[in-house]
Design a protein around this nucleic acid. Structure first.
Lengths: 165, 165
DNA sequence: GCACTAATGCAATATTATAACATTATATTT
DNA sequence: AAATATAATGTTATAATATTGCATTAGTGC
């Protein structure tokens, strides 16, 4: 598990994520192109989920002509397909996967205040989902869990400091 | 629990949902207006989640001037606030709540083939979520679970032929 | 080089959702 | 009933998110 406390050497997260992505693509004979790398780096810029159009802004800074939305969405599709990022449907946003390679669904704790999305251990949740689904003879393909609340660092702090409200 | 088998008297679901909504609004001194009723009826037209703009089409059929999007979204907000419908973020769609009154989050099984969304028992899932969140000292406010797969009626059938259309 | 495929560029558009302000309906008080 | 207040709806415009379709470019194998 990674250090998700609010004061951590985040550059390490970014470097680590990019390195693992590079390795994973090499292993699978996939192309980790500049665009894909830039998009992944942007997603990993912090632990807050980031929207496609925010990523687009970042891409624009790095290129002469402003890229169009499909550029971002295609890169995101690639990263999603290869388990390098997760999409958080309730936020229409994307976040780096903390455990790529092992294909899995993202289950997230999302802090209302600092917006940090922490991937939670699927092993604790999936059995409960499997059991509940089995009750209805439902065959699970994918499952996503999105929990909203307050993280340990934020839940004692006053509300007003949030970007949200 | 309600009869969600594929051959059921669905008119009963609709009538029941509308009746309970009417009662709930009366109890809480809320106005169950024509628009809200129409929107709820559309959401309950079947067990498949329905998009806001599809609801808008239905509203258009019932009124002289075509309503604008805010009309639908405001009615949906009302219904969401009062636990009469749930929003399924991964589909940008809305589905009737099978247990209104008891304020709760929707946890859903969504069939890839027939698209029916079945609300699953939160009591089986929430403890697991609570436990996983507690591990990270995270305070849960709301949690949503969206499971995609094949329902009992569909999961042995060949792709492409749904029982209910 | 040539053919093939994957990736990207690019223009247009689709889909989902909200903001801001005007008007109408309902309820409450007088 | 008139006056006021509040909630609901109408209306216009626009924001935010995402996709389609087709052209072009880059890399790969022959």
């Amino acid at each position: 598990m990674h250090d998700l406390s609010h004061q951590h050497n985040h550059q390490h997260c970014i470097d680590d994520a990019l390195l693992r992505a590079r390795e994973l693509c090499q292993q699978r004979n996939l192309k980790f192109t500049r665009i894909r790398e830039l998009v992944l780096a942007t997603v990993w810029a912090n632990h807050q989920p980031v929207g496609a159009y925010t990523i687009l802004e970042e891409l624009a800074k790095e290129s002469i002509r402003r890229p169009a939305p499909p550029t971002v969405y295609r890169a995101l599709d690639f990263l999603l397909d290869n388990g390098l990022v997760h999409r958080i449907a309730s936020l229409n946003a994307f976040v780096g996967c903390s455990d790529p390679g092992d294909a899995h669904q993202g289950h997230f704790l999302i802090c209302r205040q600092c917006q940090i999305a922490t991937e939670l251990d699927a092993k604790l949740i999936n059995p409960a989902i499997a059991a509940a689904a089995a009750q209805q003879a439902f065959t699970v393909e994918t499952a996503s869990v999105e929990v909203v609340g307050y993280c340990a660092q934020c839940h004692h702090k006053p509300q007003g400091e949030s970007v949200h409200e």
